[in-house]
Amino acid sequence: MIKDITLGQYSAGNSILHKIDPRTKIFTTVVYIFFLFFIDNFFCYAINFFVIFFLYSRCKISLKMMFNNIKPILPILIFTSIINLFTLRDGKIIFSFLFFSITDRSLLFIFMIFCRIVLLIFSSSLLTYTTLPIDLTYGIEKILKPLSKIKFPVDEISMMISIAIRFIPTLISETEKIILAQKSRGVDMESGNIIKKVKCMIPILIPLFISAFRRADELAIAMESRCYRVGQKRTRYKQLKFCYLDLIFLFGFGIVVSVLVLVNWFL
């Protein structure tokens, strides 16, 4: 569990990626992921990995941290790869055993999917490693801002996300406290079958929900008391400003994308 969500996965640093506007990072990450799904050239993947490793090293994020986010999905990735390996049938058969056969196309396909997913996680993690959740929220709010013209409640949603980020540590420590308290009332959470374990959740979940609602209620009153009005215009303390670093980054990004396009479709 992410214990400190206020920092999320944020790893403090001083690199260009830490300094540029979250909007730039969100935009480039989305565009990058989009491109990833069109690339089907080995050489391109090599370039991609090179660029990603370069950025990670510039941000001083360790290899261990880099692979941390891959770990949880690795079993699924391997499992689907194996299924694909034996079920995809087009292309030349290069290996066969009893009913199973592996074709060159399936091998290639699996390799590509594997690279795409890994790159996708690497690139999106890079975003969360270099951006505070609160900045991310603010960036998303700014990007979605035009939607408020069609009555989409952008400000309210952004407020909701930031309150959620604010309260997650509080609720986690509350959960820990409730678990301890019920344990000392004799709830045995370590042993027993699934049904028994599910039953153990009731004395934890009910107090947790009640407490969450109580907090929500009190917070709503406190917000109202501090002059908050839903749907009213507000100014913002935090200003996002594009600087020349954003330009440099976008320029670099443009070059990488052009190279990828060239290599993938014209070479």
Binding site: E174, I178, A181, Q182, R185, I202, P203, I206, P207, S211
Partner: peptide, 8 residues
């Protein structure tokens, strides 16, 4: 502390 929060 605040044991009333464990009532359920």
């Amino acid at each position: 502390q605040y044991p009333e929060y464990q009532l359920f």
